[in-house]
Amino acid sequence: MSELVNKFQNLSLEKPELSKEQQAFAAQWESVLKTGRTQEQLGELNLQLRDNTFALATYQPTLIDVQLFEVVFPLIKESIFSSKDVKGNYAKQRHVLRWLDYLQRLLQIPEDDQLKLNYDLELPREVIE
């Protein structure tokens, strides 16, 4: 068990009973994690987190959020550091950023390792076509 998963379980958040739809989300993201396709699914994850606060559309984060966080966090950090177009990068993956920020604080990632977000960066409003 990874350190983060351990930490998460020590928070002992209520485990929600998953609806049919949430079970389907769980199966989808478990398969992404298992097959190591997380990077290519980042856009899909951003979309999921646009409409839902957490990956499985639950009221509180679940273990799958933490497992996704472990993989996604270094990828996004890298993309933020290496990006020249900060605003464009923020705008494109704003929902993943929001979710990462929530989890990095929930899991008490050490300050120095945290991704520092500029919460009030003016981003263009996202309009669903």
Binding site: T53, Y90, L97, R98, W99, Y102, E122
Partner: peptide, 18 residues
């Protein structure tokens, strides 16, 4: 609503807490 939407771009809750 547009202003509230902007506040919630990178925040899960309005004041930014957990």
């Amino acid at each position: 609503l547009e202003r509230l939407d902007a506040v919630l771009n990178l925040r899960t809750f309005i004041l930014g807490g957990l």
